[in-house]
């Protein structure tokens, strides 16, 4: 196994991890504070990608498209919260799962109506489309570097928001005791709407960032949402720190497993057996990890203290 490839895959793993964090952070925020299970979170990721794709083709500039698409996803999140989600806060998790399942059908079919059945490729500006040499012999695509940088900035921003701002204080207070916060005169409904819209923006941003690599497509939300669920289960549902650490772990394990598991298997079994079993095992790797962690810690790695 050669070292350069190993580092490249590490890099890709971290990039996938940070992208997963963007999706998972919104999911865990919404669950932790609103006590709401949002299956349709993946659809917001998809909407972000499609809106960004359209705007890129319209403005001819990917970065402008992202800047305009962010408030648009916030508005979409706002209306979804006002029309459907708000009515479900006091319902059981089962009802929330079923209603947001219906919401997925509505959002995905709407995307189908608006953007058509085929995916939309998103062109990058030339300066983002190249490669940079980080240090000697270690050349990485500059766009993936941008994803990593964005992910880290957002993670730091969320950490600051939740721990050091008044809004963050309300968010944490709302998570531990909703009734008390509203008794103190805080408009809890507006707070909830804000948090939901913030989650939508985070998911949308992830979709925008991935769209130049994979293109915007209808099924993309369904693929990422399960992995994001695995991330927040491992991290502890409602924990931002847990979501970050679990996302990086999952990103690394998934990427490394797909690249190097067959080499690893070849040490203990025949080449043929390794080549048939490695893809199957690497596809299941993150779920096996989830099972192991839950067998030891049913509440995940960092369960929030108050719930």
């Amino acid at each position: 196994m050669d070292a350069a490839l190993f580092f490249i895959q590490m890099f890709n793993g971290v990039q996938l991890g940070l992208l997963l964090f963007l999706v998972a952070s919104g999911l865990t925020l919404v669950f932790g504070i609103l006590d709401f299970v949002n299956l349709a979170h993946g659809s917001l990721y998809m909407i972000g990608a499609f809106v960004c794709a359209s705007l890129t083709l319209l403005t001819g500039n990917f970065l402008w498209a992202v800047l305009i698409a962010l408030p648009i996803t916030a508005v979409v999140g706002f209306f979804i919260e006002r029309i459907v989600v708000r009515r479900l806060y006091h319902r059981s998790h089962l009802d929330q799962v079923l209603a947001t399942f219906g919401l997925i059908l509505v959002l995905d079919t709407s995307a189908h109506l608006i953007w058509g059945p085929a995916g939309i490729a998103v062109p990058l500006p030339a300066w983002l489309d190249g490669r940079v040499e980080l240090f000697s012999g270690f050349v990485v695509p500059s766009f993936r570097l941008l994803i990593i940088a964005t992910g880290l900035v957002i993670a730091a921003g969320l950490f600051w928001l939740v721990n050091y701002t008044r809004l963050g204080m309300l968010i944490r207070a709302g998570a531990s005791n909703r009734t008390m916060v509203s008794a103190l005169g805080i408009d809890i409904q507006t707070l909830f709407t804000l948090v939901f819209a913030l989650g939508a923006v985070l998911a949308g941003l992830a979709g925008m960032l991935i769209s130049p690599i994979t293109e915007a497509s209808i099924g993309m939300g369904g693929e990422i949402i399960i992995t994001a669920f695995v991330v927040i289960i491992i991290g502890g549902i409602g924990s931002m720190k847990g979501a970050f650490i679990a996302a990086i772990i999952i990103g690394l394990i998934d990427t490394m497993g797909r690249s190097f598991l067959d080499d690893l298997f070849k040490i203990v079994m025949s080449t043929e057996a390794a080549e048939t079993s490695a893809p199957a095992v690497s596809a299941m790797l993150i779920y096996i990890l989830m099972a192991l962690i839950l067998a030891l810690r049913p509440q995940g790695l960092f369960p929030p203290k108050v719930r």
Binding site: V37, F229, I233, I237, Y287, M290, L294
Partner: peptide, 10 residues
Amino acid sequence: VYFIMITMAF
């Protein structure tokens, strides 16, 4: 909600 998500993940 853990049960919901874990059965889904498996």
